[in-house]
Amino acid sequence: MTTPCIENAGVDAWMVRFADQINPDNQRWIRAFCRQCRAVFGPALVDLVPSYTTVLVQYDPWQMTDVAARATLSDLLDQLAPESAETVGRLVELPVWYDVSVGPELALIAEQTGWTMEQVASAHAAGEYQVFALGFVPGFAFMGLVDPALATPRLATPRQRVPKGSIAIAERQTSAYPQVTPGGWNLIGRTPLTLFDPQSDPMTVLEAGDRVRFVPITRDCFIELGGDTTPVGEGSA
């Protein structure tokens, strides 16, 4: 754990950086920081966006100057201690149909690893992943870490339309797209589950701290569970 740094993020936000690399231990510091931030800033806090290595702190600029907000963060970090025992999150299983029609980058990752597409799928499904943060869009869970062999950079140009339920990899992160959105991650399969529903409580299937396993299912099973088989880049999916 290096000394956290505080970086400018505009007129009403500071970015607190705890580390440069993803490490599950970061989360103990980040969770402790978020809890204390809420207590110290009180009503002047507008939003906190924790991620793997950072927390974006947005405050009310009419209640605090940027200098005062920075000083508050600096004092808080000086006295910060990580959360002690890591509580074991609940295990959530996500069914996935791994297929090149709904996961075109299966082929790309197979090529880069020298494996078959089936082996790529098995390697992804073999892992147990931690949910580090929710973000990007509602219910989108940032999970990791995938097998280093599967690590793949984001697409040079994001897709305008990633289908709902798409299972994806970016570097050593993995996730499932809860809704149709633009996105730059590598697609390798699709889950039939609805991961975000504003009408249900809770609204998201996954939450930060959960452990996740991806369970491979057949095309028939995917359809039975209500999955949409429309290939990536075509029509309605």
Partner: peptide, 16 residues
């Protein structure tokens, strides 16, 4: 190669 992080309003990001 970046780890995903929070985006403040008005952030200007540059994809590859």
């Amino acid at each position: 190669a970046m780890v995903s992080e929070g985006i403040a309003p008005g952030s200007v990001q540059v994809p590859p």
